[in-house]
Simulated scan of single mutants.
Amino acid sequence: MTVSAKTALGALALLASGFTAAVCQPAKPNPAKPKPLVSHIYTADPSAHVFNGKLYIYPSHDVEGNVAEDDEGAHFNMRDYHILSMDNIGGKVTDHGVALDLKDIPWAGRQLWAPDAAYKNGTYYLYFPVKDKQDVFRMGVATSKSPTGPFKAEPKPIPGSYSIDPAVFTDTDGKSYMYLGGIWGGQLQRWHTGTYEANGSKTDLKKDNEPALSAKVARLSNDMLTFDEPLKDIQILDKEGKPLLGGDHDRRFFEGGWMHKYKDKYYFSYSTGDTHFLAYATGDSPYGPFTYQGVLMNPVTGWTTHHSIVEFKGKWYIFYHDVELTGKTHLRNVKVREITRKPDGTFVTITP
């Protein structure tokens, strides 16, 4: 989820023309300029998964809330989730309608930001950040017997959870982990002492020469509804083994983390936020530490991006968003394109 447009790159000014169909069929993607997956609604922050041989995308649903823009992301005032599916890259994309609505989450206050999903024990799980009635972001979880929902939310948030951008990764041994965190409007900086500081910094801690604020990770319980341990820091190191510093805005973690595994290596990718890169680091454990490797994707049009990486039918793809349809930071559209690895497993940097 993004939180500011003050340093926005030049956004395209093509306006959406009010599509209403619940199913749309985009042109096959051009490697130079992929098309939005759907244009009848605005979508962002796509978490893509393969369930039963089919691609399912769990995005945010951007709406025009007519809320003033600020550094805490008040203008990202989403109220529900739609789930998309596709049988083939470049093929028909189906919108399955509302899978979960804000009004059906007993403890929620406002702002349903970037979700993720998982499958285990015959159940599909939808994880979501939303501000509670005290305006503090917590993680919720909802369940369904179908990957497209509808999902029923648990009556309370996950104990010990906070901040935004859940990403759930299930390892080859069956253990599942949640990665989370985002600074500025994501409130991660307000938890740096372990307790929420309501009047804490609205941006970051401005400690440029100290280790940067880190994403968090916790192993999930077998029922996938709670943490099996306290949240831990994710350490991102440079090639010399030193932690990335708060002032290293081109490489530090900001928000939008994602985990995937390739040939026994763990790849933690994330947004650098105010410098607009998607960066990645690799490690030998789902807990890290992770060594910074480089830029996965250069800046998109818009303020920042939020992505997921998935293998589908023998190829690897990145799902991400930009603002092609509207030119507005808070009204985005999801895209997909293939990613390429070098023989050593590192990525060929994408320039969208």
Rank of each mutant, 00 (worst) to 15 (best):
A5L: 09
T20H: 13
A32S: 11
A48E: 02
V50N: 03
N52D: 13
L55M: 14
I57L: 01
H61K: 09
G65V: 06
V67G: 09
E69Y: 03
D71W: 11
H75N: 03
M86L: 06
D95W: 13
H96I: 08
G97D: 11
L100A: 06
L102V: 07
I105G: 12
A108N: 09
Q111E: 02
W113S: 13
A114T: 13
D116P: 10
Y125N: 11
Y125T: 11
V130M: 12
Q134V: 05
F137E: 14
F137N: 09
G140Y: 05
V141W: 07
K145I: 13
S146V: 07
A153M: 04
P157A: 12
S161K: 00
S161A: 01
T170C: 10
M178Y: 02
G182Y: 03
W184G: 12
G185E: 08
Q189L: 06
R190H: 03
Y196M: 11
E197C: 14
N199Y: 06
T203Q: 14
E210A: 12
L213S: 14
S221R: 00
L225A: 10
L231H: 01
Q235P: 11
L244I: 15
M259S: 05
H260E: 02
Y266H: 04
Y267K: 04
Y267Q: 04
S269F: 01
Y270T: 04
A279C: 10
G283E: 04
T291N: 07
L296C: 03
G302A: 01
E311C: 05
E311V: 01
K313N: 05
G314F: 02
K315F: 02
T326R: 04
G327Q: 15
T329C: 15
K335E: 10
K342R: 02
K342P: 01
T349S: 13
T349A: 13
T351H: 15
P352G: 08
